[in-house]
């Protein structure tokens, strides 16, 4: 296996992705990721040095809106699914940095 992912990397990616895997999940995910990356390394067989990365398949461009207010009070719909709300706002654990 060419790609070896350290526990540290798994922890780091977990912080980025906001996922906390159990030890068992972590080991499984690590193994899967290593084999996926080995497989993805196959792309290195291709010489892409002269190829521009393609994010959009079609050359669509300049899709704009005019600056006109069309939406009214979205409050009720916005909060309809909130797990916790108060005073027309979403409630989250305190965010002030310590």
């Amino acid at each position: 296996m060419a790609n070896v992912i350290s526990d540290e990397t798994m922890g780091y990616v977990g912080i980025l992705a906001k996922l906390e895997l159990s030890e068992e999940e972590k080991q499984a995910a690590k193994k899967d990721m290593e084999s996926m990356l080995d497989y993805i390394d196959k792309l290195n067989e291709l010489d892409t040095s002269k190829v521009e990365p393609m994010s959009h398949v079609f050359p669509v461009k300049n899709v704009f809106r005019e600056d006109v207010v069309e939406n009214g009070d979205g409050g009720e719909a916005t909060l309809a699914n909130a797990p916790e709300k108060r005073d027309r706002a979403f409630v989250v654990p305190k965010t002030v940095d310590q």
């Binding site: 207010v69 939406n71 009070d73 979205g74 409050g75 719909a77 027309r88 706002a89 979403f90």
Partner: peptide, 17 residues
């Protein structure tokens, strides 16, 4: 989105999906 940028409204009123 076409929500208003006006200041001073009640929370979450100038909102959409």
């Amino acid at each position: 989105c076409s929500c208003s940028t006006a200041f001073g409204s009640a929370p979450n009123t100038h909102t959409c999906p």
